[in-house]
Design a protein around this nucleic acid. Sequence first.
DNA 1: GGAGTCACG
DNA 2: ACGTACGTGACTCCC
Length: 879
Amino acid sequence: MSEKILLIDGHSILNRAFYGLPDLTNSEGLHTGAVYGFLNIILRILEEEKPKYLTVAFDLHAPTFRHKIYEAYKGTRKPMPQELREQVPLIKEMLQAMGVEIVSKEGYEADDLLGTLARQSEAKGMDVTILSGDRDLLQLATEKVMIRLPKTVRGKTTIEDYHAQQVIEKYQVTPAQVIELKALMGDSADNIPGIPGVGEKTATKLIVEYGSIENAYQHVEEIKPNKARESLREHYNLAQLSKTLATINTESPVDFSYEKARLGDLYTKEAFALCKRLDFKNLLARFDQTMSQELTEVKEFFTCEDLSGCEALFEKAGKQKVVGTALLSDKEEVYGLGLAITEQEIYYIPVANFITGPYLCGKIADLALNTRICAIDIKTMLKHVNLEEEHQVFDAGVAAYLLNPLKSTYTCEDLAREYEGGKMIPSREELLGKASFRKAWEEDQEGLSSYACYTAETVLSCMEPLKQALEETGMWKVYTQIELPLIFTLDSMEKTGIQVKGEELKAYGDRLAVRIHELEQAIYQQAGEEFNINSPKQLGVVLFEKMGIKGGKKTKTGYSTAADVLEKLAEQQPIIKDILEYRQLAKLKSTYADGLAGMIDKDGRIHSTFNQTITATGRISSTEPNLQNIPVRMELGRLIRKVFVPEDGCVFLDADYSQIELRVLAHMSGDQTLIQAYQQAQDIHRLTASQVFHVPFDQVTPLQRRNAKAVNFGIVYGISSFGLSQDLSITRKEAADYIQKYFETYPKIKEFLDDLVETAREKGYASTMYGRRRPVPELKSSNFMQRSFGERVAMNSPIQGTAADIIKIAMNRVYKRLKSEGKKSRLVLQVHDELLIETRKEELTQVARILEEEMKGAASLQVELEVDMHEGSSWYEAK
DNA sequence: GGAGTCACG
DNA sequence: ACGTACGTGACTCCC
């Protein structure tokens, strides 16, 4: 069998991948989708073809011989979008890392190089495969040269293959005649002019009949469609120029050596490292499993299993200013500790023999009095180790979150890569697989030891770089003054939990079940069949096809059955009201009645987790269960709050900030109208209505006030006329009108918001009053929608984020005062602008005072921070 | 695992 | 023209 060479059209395949596949972004925010798609395509082809030689051709920026003969050539070609342009060096870097030969030549296009190499290789008797997205390449097809054109339809890539024979079958012309076709038709993408009035059909007809443009011109009199005849007559010279332009130069002076192009092992260490950096997790599986071990620097880790040795280690650690730790634990138990005393002395101390979990945790707490404990998640550690704010800690996860809040996880291997100059360490999955710490402790001490040591070492090494980065970005204060103390505040809230009446919750669920069943039957009866009402797909078919309800359609996958869509159709059929009610009840039952009931611990309380490193803006989030979205707007749902009760001898005290985001906006923008309104404690929505609609303050109608309120919300979200029109069910024009009038009323706010966008565009991030940052890479996008999103984010993040900063400060202060004043009352929940305290009855007056003082005093703005406070014997009553 | 839906601020 | 309000998490269906 003859040897085979695979030739790839670099830019064309990258383009295909970019436009045909969804974009991806790695943890640094680099766009990587096209690179990923490119690799997937070529790896697939390589597996199919198994060529001996491989090379990828790229165009250069320099003008080519085509420019010399035709000035407009590619002159008006639209520039590559930013997201694609930044991937060109990445794919070249990747190919280089894989040892793949790249060819380019000034003055020539990739096509010319591919054509030249194809002919040379063919002459040597090789089989040639050319991979490109560009049909122009078909002119190169022969019996030995196959052109492969990938096509992506809805994310699925299929490949069309062409030898000379297939070209003839599909286009009725020989490969060489493809040039004639193109010269006649023209090609707007390549700026090849072509002949006016001649499209694919006419061109094919002419070439099939006459073989070439020249021969057609010889017989120009006979040409049938008058238009084509006259056009060819008039533009013959142009057609010949086009032909020159469209002809691939198969004798380009390309520097090429088959030796260098010989296909070797693609799965090199360098490529592995780059795949890791770009987050190509699926590709990593193709690499040798020992790769990551070979890549990481070999460092000796030690294991200490005896009590006296362990004592000695902690004594040594106590002489350090800072150590790295990795406490291996789950909710119930501690399994061991990774301890990096210095960057060279790294130990794994498993729980074994006389070394118990509580013993280890006690040693850590003692150590932390004089030595700073670095870890990646201090709050989890606090579940076993009794640390207070007087202990010294550093949370590398929280620090990394502040530096880039857009990541979804903050893992050790990312820290090492990002803050230790690209250093590679194995991930938890690589070391332990999917095993829990418990399982690994039982079955894989070696893996657990490595994991503990790598983690301890990394958090130690990363502390200084993280600290420095926080200082350089002006976020050191946010870290030390807000986030670090917040770890202890949140930990206390999680440990305290909130009492929930399980039986009442069950009874509530049962009541729902009765009504849900009734609705189910009514819906089946009206639909004339039983189906799964919870399936939007089935529901859509029943409503819009079977029952013929008008006005459906939306979404990629079918009909939209969202509440706002159905509400507009409720008139048509009574079934719709039943479905809406069913949906509401089903939600209440599954998520709240049943969901919460399953989360009640043995102590009769629910202990949610408050996540500190999730949101892009600086808010906290709540999971397992989410206690920040307990129903309140509808009465039926609101009743659930009756099962959240304080323990005996306590009441709930609930305080929420009144319109904190608008107040933040007033302060940050310095708009005097808004500031004065708040100073005079005016109804802000009514005021906005009176000014925007030009009516006296006391003659504002409820509708006008409602509209003004929506505008105020819109401003905070990053206003757009479309969004506002959706919300108010008005036309875009009317919405735009409201917005315009709003900005006339509050000119400083317009200025302020414009400035937020401009600053974010220049700096690449938006900032809160306290200096917390949120990167906004979307502002640089070439996609209108993405960019508009970036603009709204740039307006919203500083406002939402500043409010988040303020309530975090308030929480820390409240927590601290309750503690320092020896109170038994405890903070139990935070819901973004609301704090809930389980308050001892005898402490009520003082706690109310503490809560009000600390919330109001958390920030001093140009407007007062107003707080609404209520007490009650359930969350329902305290709101 | 993604899409659709819906609960909250 | 493009086609969305900002920030979350849980549940269900369905590939």
